[in-house]
Design a binder for these strands. Sequence first.
DNA 1: CTTGACTCTGCACGATATTGCACGAATTCT
DNA 2: AGAATTCGTGCAATATCGTGCAGAGTCAAG
Lengths: 257, 257
Amino acid sequence: MLTTERKALIQQVLRRDGRLIAKSFAYELGVSEDTIRRDLRELAAEGLLQRVHGGALPASSATADYPARQSTASSSKALLGLAAARLIQPGQIVFLDGGTTNLQLARQLPLDLKATIITHSPSVAVELACHPSVDVELIGGRIFKHSIVAMGSTSAEAISRIRADIFFMGVTGLHPETGATTGNGEEAAIKRLISRQSGETIVLATEEKLGAASPYQIVPLAEIASIIREPGTDEKSSRLFRSVAIKVLQANAPKQD
Amino acid sequence: MLTTERKALIQQVLRRDGRLIAKSFAYELGVSEDTIRRDLRELAAEGLLQRVHGGALPASSATADYPARQSTASSSKALLGLAAARLIQPGQIVFLDGGTTNLQLARQLPLDLKATIITHSPSVAVELACHPSVDVELIGGRIFKHSIVAMGSTSAEAISRIRADIFFMGVTGLHPETGATTGNGEEAAIKRLISRQSGETIVLATEEKLGAASPYQIVPLAEIASIIREPGTDEKSSRLFRSVAIKVLQANAPKQD
DNA sequence: CTTGACTCTGCACGATATTGCACGAATTCT
DNA sequence: AGAATTCGTGCAATATCGTGCAGAGTCAAG
């Protein structure tokens, strides 16, 4: 049994079961617990999993991660959402990605907007169900619990039959060289597909995502039409993106209206 | 059971139910109350929940949202949901209809249940996204805003490719002569389709629906396997349904556990 | 072919974490 | 007020962890 092989297996088990018990896994593989523990320690050092007493959990498991992010839904995301919502023209077909920022966008849609919103996020669909005039088209598929969106072949097929005018894409990183990135390979593939089915792709980027990079590339920067950033973001990075012909729009500071 | 995992579970239950009883949760997990109390204390120290006598509540922010959910979830629907959740065997494929009663059902699924839940209700999908062990398959389609479920030809096509073991169907009327009925023709058609793709169809009926009829028939009584009714419902009507070979199960009255 | 450097693995052992129980204090219910 | 829970702490048993160390295997240079 190769070390690398074993480590791959560990990550596979984590993805499958969402947990790994050091003791039982060692027995299963016929190696000592020490070896497994060593593997776990090393993988944890690389940030590939979360080491806990007794075994390991996925790095950013569905168990702890999403709700934590949910609570970070700050007012800046609402501002981004509002700025994005204003870009939508009546009658357009808009694809809304999952994630808290896009959920904010859904919440900010003008109540008199007539448009078709397509989404693979059940949360966004629920949010829009009480909007009086937009049509909502839900993409089905297997629910990916980490980010609560539909994924898999069913989703991909449904998406491939649709052409949207705008895609508001959620990312976890946006970097001049690595482009738009996210933390999951399959997720990246789905986003890429949606992006290519859409007239233009717009990224809503909170400050911490600008200049950051995650493991999986969705698309290179060239395929992104615009970036909407928070007010107060460092102007330097914006210039960097503008230099590759991307529009960088700044969300307005809060105003009394 | 890893300690970290258990703590994550505690927070999940808190988000799901809005509260946690130390004693019953300890029993549910098969650990001592001391262990749970210790966890609660530690989580409280991190500000992740609010410790109260007998158990815990979500950390302040979410507390406000609990009474809201509590009110929409009348206790009788929760009871119906619980009774229904117990009918699901591990490994089964279950189709969950939309509606508040089925949302309750989703909320009541045992945390250790391994099954596949299919639904065309984004609300149910969101609710189940934080369930640790069920797979969730979302049916896409145009969102019908009145009942917040996906409908239309896309949904019908996706449904027709699936065979489920059980279908928990929401209805607005259940009458010995008109059968199961609902208020919208297209909705009735979709429910009928799901019912015919499923091994058995089970209706969760709150008291006001028994003996009532709505404009559109979904299926005749003969195609319904069981009805789950609230405790305290008039026994006469149950006999009527039993006479056409339908099992009528009664949800248990609340018990102290 | 031999030697030496290197890696991987399993074992030993002290350190640390977790758990369940006991018991008195605090809280809630009646 | 009195009974019944629930709570918190101390404690002992057990499980798990991390580290140092030695043997086995690998590989490349000599």
